[in-house]
Computed example of a mutant assay.
Amino acid sequence: MMANLFSTFDPSTNFNTSLNWLSIFLGLIIIPPMFWLFPSRLNFMWIKIFSLLHNEFKNLIKMKNYKGSTLLFISLFSLIMFNNSLGLFPYIFTCTSHINLTFTLSLPLWLTFMMFGWMKNTTHMFAHLVPQGAPSILLPFLVLIETTSNIIRPGTLAIRLTANMIAGHLLITLLSNSGSFLNLYILNILIIVQILLFTLESAVAMIQSYVFSILATLYSSEIN
Rank of each mutant, 00 (worst) to 15 (best):
I214M: 09
W21T: 07
N177K: 11
A216R: 00
K64L: 05
I172G: 03
N188H: 13
N14S: 14
K58A: 06
I47Q: 12
L79Y: 05
A216S: 14
L139P: 05
V143M: 05
V130E: 03
L60K: 09
S97D: 02
P140E: 09
L184A: 11
I152Y: 08
L197E: 04
T17Y: 05
Q132Y: 12
I30S: 04
K62Y: 06
P140H: 04
F198H: 10
E222F: 08
M165V: 02
N59Q: 14
N20Y: 02
L42H: 09
T8K: 14
I99G: 06
N183Y: 03
N20K: 12
N83M: 09
A216M: 05
F89M: 11
L107F: 07
I137V: 14
L79A: 04
S12R: 13
N43F: 08
N177V: 12
W118G: 10
S18W: 14
M165W: 00
I92H: 02
Y210V: 06
I99L: 10
M45G: 09
L197V: 02
F50C: 08
I61E: 01
L109K: 04
N224R: 13
N83W: 01
P135D: 04
Q194D: 10
S51D: 08
H124F: 06
N16F: 08
T122K: 15
P33W: 07
W21M: 08
I166A: 01
K120A: 12
I159N: 12
A216G: 11
T13K: 04
G179L: 14
K120P: 02
L170S: 04
I47P: 00
V130Q: 02
I145H: 13
L215I: 14
L79C: 00
M119K: 15
W46V: 13
P108C: 02
I223A: 06
I152N: 02
L111A: 09
L196F: 14
P32Q: 02
W110P: 03
N83V: 03
F9E: 03
L42C: 07
A134H: 08
L157G: 00
I80K: 01
H124D: 05
T8C: 11
F212N: 01
S78F: 06
I80E: 02
L72P: 01
L53F: 10
G27V: 00
S85D: 01
I189E: 13
F116D: 03
A167T: 07
I24F: 10
A3D: 13
I24R: 03
F181T: 11
S149H: 13
I31W: 12
S40A: 02
S12H: 08
F50L: 09
L187P: 00
I207E: 10
T17L: 09
N188E: 14
P90Q: 01
T123G: 15
H98T: 05
I189K: 14
T199Y: 13
T112V: 11
F57I: 05
T13Q: 03
A3C: 06
I99K: 03
L190D: 03
W21D: 06
E201C: 07
A203R: 09
S180T: 10
L139E: 15
N84D: 04
N83H: 04
F212Q: 01
I92V: 14
G179Y: 13
A205Y: 01
Y91N: 15
F181C: 06
S18C: 08
F25C: 08
